[in-house]
Amino acid sequence: MKRINALVLIFLILIFSYLIIADIKKPKIFVVHSYSPEYLWVKKINNAINSKLQDKKYVTIHYFYMDSKHHPEKNYLEKVGKKARDLIYSWKPNVLIACNDDAQNYVAKYFVNDPSINIVFCGTSADPSIYGYKNAKNVTGIVENIPFDAAKQVFLSQFPQFKKVLHISDGSTTSQYVNQEFLRYKWQPLKLTGSFLTNDFSQWKKHILGAARYADFIYLTHYHTIRDQGRYVTPQELIKWTLANSPIPIIGSFEFFVADGGPFAVTVSATEQGEVAIKLALEIIESQKQGGEIPIVQNKVIGISSRQPRFNHDFPHNKIQGIYYSFARESGRHYQDDNKSI
């Protein structure tokens, strides 16, 4: 009996040790968002990630938010970036998912070719090579380019009266890269008549109020780092003023524009960014590949987002075409003025 008891004891010690070690060695994913959790873009990415992880409970996930929209200052970003990097060094995740440009700039690029971690980037408007991702052994991801071709098609079919486009956005890092894309893109038969970037609300107001001199409509991208004499202007407040004062209609390029009160947007899909990022992360974990072995993905999905009755107010000569309306409704991106998406 003593022999049995000794064997049972050894068995139990080994079992508990095994469970503890296996638990510690669970695959870990660290997600760094450039922005804050209440931002719709971030919410959609997180929803996509979490829904893919529903059946992968053995994957431990940790989120970190840099909140760069509220704090675009370089000092702050360096400080918060270091904090994220320290967390990564201590937690030792298998995969780092870095969302949007600040997360690449202040966190992910420090781990390029680090054999202990793989990087999956998403939401980057910049060329990945500027972060050293080109030919890196441990990096893959999905780029986020404004869907210019799709947007142009929508503009031409939905708003045939518009010929001249004006781009206005904040002056954030991401917007700098987006601006380069705007300037590079061949807009014919439309014409890009200007692209203004500013972080100052008074400048913003000036650009909006004078927009009719340049264009038939404004194509709006980011607007989350605008300050009014040092005071942070909330996106809702900014869009409210902009819609009330713009002499020409405004079309957004992200769903958050419509969520903040705008009438219409041809959007990049945050859900696609999240879904592809987590898919790549899981592929790295489950197939034990290095990030560099998996090709970088180009975003393919576009979204249409609309709001009634705001659309009818801003575009009295246009009715939302059935296909866009259906698309927006089907994908849960059609808003009513009670601000609920349906």
Partner: peptide
Amino acid sequence: SATMILGIVPA
């Protein structure tokens, strides 16, 4: 208990 501890499948 072991599958729950290790999160092998959803609860």
